[in-house]
Design a protein around this nucleic acid. Structure first.
Length: 484
DNA sequence: CTAGGGTTAG
């Protein structure tokens, strides 16, 4: 016994696949050991060996992009593969702009981009949302003569789509000589994500006519379009198709199905799916909570939220849109307010304008109009029409003309031709018996840029006929006489 | 010698 029974590691020189050891690493700790051995054995000078190390650091979940950069910088003459891998790592990392900078650097050094370079670079573009950048990269693609490569075209279609340039995306799609399922899916998804669900569905129809069989990725996107445009029937047909073909339903596809049912008001179908799902993510919970909230099941939406907390699922900003709107529906002012405050305090989520919108609606409906106003002032953004309209509606319910005046002024700044709000205010004055204000407002309206717009009319000199949107105003003849 | 695409919640 003794030292002899301890298996010795093979001598480094006799390790034939040292470089491949990097591919089997599970942690940076292991990788650094392989790296050390490579340095000792001088294998690190071999670009292929270095590439295996770099791939792990730049691409793996357990990797470290900073370490990847250091390996890269220590490589004498990085080849195309190393450049591409580092660009790829940055493209899906926290700062996709770095991928673009790296590409620029690569070109300056005279390295020619290959067919693997652009898909990664375009992935970065699709996370940067700059149409200008897309166009520049597109130019580079054409110059490189890679504009027929399907991976590259797919990347371009995707990048243009997310840069809200569906026209450019569609053009490339149309010109693509032989389209594959991925490109069809990218284009359909582009329409869906830009809220053009009809175009998405028409395209899907064409795809099927041309003989392509959709897979789970395509179907998830199509179901999202069904949810947007209220196509319950098509959604159900797709569900049947999935069962018939035995397509595997992972968490994404089943969430898409659930969402389609929930959005279309088929709450029990959605609930059944939800209960039967073995794997759920935040999107799944969100789809269910928001579906319940928007179809009058506020209490159930809330109890689902408490359950989510218990299951240690981490809610995100979308979860809170659903929960807060549930509180709004149910008139749960205090609970809603508490949840709103917990967003930042407990979950570290900065409320967005939608959340403030829910809160203004909630406080307003509860008659806490000054608090609602105060909340708007605390926001980082200028209030939009959604928020101001909610507040004005709340003022109307509670007959608060003082706050309403301020709101109307803000709305007129945003929408100078929105005369309808004057009518609302005028009605409120009349309801409150503030006849002098009614007359003052009439003057403002006459002097202002009154345009006849559909839905309401003001006949000059005759203020008795206001209709907006369909309700007779409270301006009775009696008050008009005061003007004389 | 190595590698790549498209998907869910608002």
């Amino acid at each position: 016994m003794g030292l002899r029974s301890v298996p010795l590691p093979p001598p480094i020189s006799k390790t034939p696949h040292l470089s491949l050891l990097a591919d089997n690493c599970n942690s940076m700790r292991q990788l650094k050991q392989v790296h050390a051995q490579m340095i000792v054995s001088a294998r690190i000078l071999d670009t292929f060996a270095a590439s295996r190390l770099l791939s792990f650091c730049a691409l793996s979940e357990a990797g470290d992009i900073g370490y990847a950069i250091r390996i890269f910088e220590n490589t004498q003459v990085p080849n195309g593969f190393l450049w591409n891998t580092l660009i790829r790592g940055h493209a899906s990392g926290s700062d996709p702009c770095e991928a673009v900078l790296l590409y620029v650097k690569m070109r300056r050094l005279g390295v020619v981009p290959g067919k693997h370079t652009f898909p990664f670079l375009l992935k970065a573009c699709s996370r940067i949302f700059s149409l200008g950048l897309c166009k520049q990269v597109h130019t580079q693609v054409v110059k490189s003569g890679l504009d027929l490569d399907l991976h590259v075209v797919n990347g371009l279609v995707r990048a243009y789509s997310v840069s809200s340039s569906l026209g450019d995306a569609r053009l490339l799609f149309a010109e693509s000589p032989d389209r594959n399922l991925s490109i069809w899916t990218t284009m359909i998804c582009g329409y869906t994500q830009n809220f053009c669900s009809n175009e998405a569905l028409v395209l899907f129809d064409q795809m099927v006519v041309e003989g392509f069989e959709p897979n789970s990725v395509t179907l998830a996107s199509v179901l999202s379009a069904c949810a947007q445009s209220g196509c319950l029937e098509l959604g159900e047909r797709i569900h049947a198709f999935i069962k018939e073909r035995g397509i595997e339903v992972g968490v994404i596809l089943s969430t898409a199905l659930l969402h389609m049912y929930a959005k279309n008001g088929a709450i029990s179908a959605a609930q059944d799916l939800f209960d039967g799902m073995c794997e759920k993510n935040v999107a799944t919970w969100n789809a269910m909570i928001c579906g319940l909230a928007s179809h009058g099941h506020a209490e159930e939406a809330l109890s689902l939220f408490w359950k989510l907390e218990k299951e240690k699922v981490v809610p995100n900003d979308i979860t809170f849109v659903g929960v807060l709107s549930a509180c709004c529906h149910a008139g749960l002012i205090d609970i809603g307010h508490e949840i709103f405050l917990s967003m930042k305090k407990v979950y570290g989520i900065e409320p967005k304008i939608e959340h403030y919108g829910c809160m203004v609606d909630l406080l307003g409906k509860g008659g806490k109009l000054t608090e609602a106003e105060k909340l708007i002032k605390e926001m980082l953004w200028k209030p939009d029409m959604v928020i101001l309209s909610a507040l004005l509606a709340a003022c109307n319910i509670h007959g608060n003309t003082e706050v309403a005046e301020r709101v109307v002024k803000e709305i007129i700044v945003l929408e100078p031709h929105n005369q309808g709000v004057y009518v609302v205010l005028s009605n409120m004055y009349a309801e409150a018996g503030q006849w002098e204000d009614v007359l003052k407002l009439r003057k403002v309206m006459k002097e202002g840029s009154i345009k006849k717009t559909p839905g309401w009319s003001l006949v000059d000199g005759d203020a008795t006929v206001y209709k907006y949107p369909s309700q007779e105003t409270h301006l009775a003849d009696g008050h008009l006489e005061k003007e004389k």
